[in-house]
């Protein structure tokens, strides 16, 4: 199966190389090339793709700002000639990081890794995939079960402060303890978003009853600071009755 992608890159030579590599690999279909973040976002508002090749330093806005504004989570390959972005890349859960200029061999390694991720349900070595929250979570109950610490743990929804995406895992943060379960934020979003839970960033879902205050683009919640993604600002304002 070919992965659909767009290239967000302001240097033409770099974009041409990427396009050529995509064609050569026959694993990736390029839906478009954009020289800046604004044009890429316009496209992504209309059409979803499987992955982005995303440069970081571009005129106007940088690649991380695009990630802040995205309202869904495609796979991301950062393409940059600076290694200093590695920490940000980790924070934004990017799937791979290609330092420009990179060879076809390196490109192919990255794509094959993503293809495996798509083709095979993500199973950590020698473990059984967690059924995320059990069906109890999808019914109208005030609790859910998550698989963590080799058992099914019952969590009261009202005890959850927020959920944080950790690539193929999700961290449930409660006042007493944090739990990490094998699942995706998208999966949790489908099960939890409702009256009390709100996705405020591509990596965070918060329990709105637990919010202490909001300063600028940051939610403060029992000593924790959660960023509000640009693409989520309007929904946050609407849901929290911000006047």
């Amino acid at each position: 199966m070919k992965l659909s992608c767009i290239i967000v890159e302001d240097i033409q030579i770099a974009a041409d190389f990427l396009r050529k590599f995509c064609e050569k690999s026959d694993l990736v279909e390029v839906k478009g090339h954009f020289l800046n973040v604004a044009d890429a976002l316009d496209f992504l508002d209309q059409e979803k793709v499987d992955m982005l090749f995303l440069d970081v330093e571009m005129p106007g806005a940088n690649g991380f700002e695009l990630l802040d504004r995205l309202t869904y989570s495609p796979m991301i390959i950062l393409t940059t000639s600076k290694t200093e972005y590695a920490f940000n890349a980790f924070q934004y859960h990017v799937d791979d990081y290609l330092k420009k200029p990179f060879t076809f061999k390196r490109f192919q390694e990255a794509i094959q890794k993503l293809q495996q991720k798509v083709a095979v349900p993500q199973t950590p070595a020698n473990t059984t995939p967690t059924p995320a929250p059990t069906p109890a979570a999808t019914t109208d109950t005030d609790f859910l079960f998550i698989k963590a610490e080799d058992k099914l743990i019952k969590l009261k929804k009202d005890d959850i402060l927020f959920l944080e995406s950790m690539r193929d895992y999700v961290k449930f943060v409660t006042p007493a303890k944090n739990y990490i379960t094998y699942s995706t934020l998208k999966n949790m979003e489908e099960k939890l978003i409702g009256l009390n839970f709100l996705k405020v960033h591509r990596s965070y879902i918060v329990n709105i009853n637990k919010i202490d205050d909001i300063r600028g683009n940051t939610i403060y919640l029992l000593g924790n600071q959660i960023p509000i993604g640009k693409g989520h600002k309007d929904e946050v304002a609407a849901r929290l009755n911000i006047l």
Binding site: D10, I11, I13, A14, F17, E57, S81, K100, P101
Partner: peptide, 8 residues
């Protein structure tokens, strides 16, 4: 930007 070009 020039640095990237020199690399190619």
């Amino acid at each position: 930007t020039c640095k990237t070009l020199f690399g190619y």
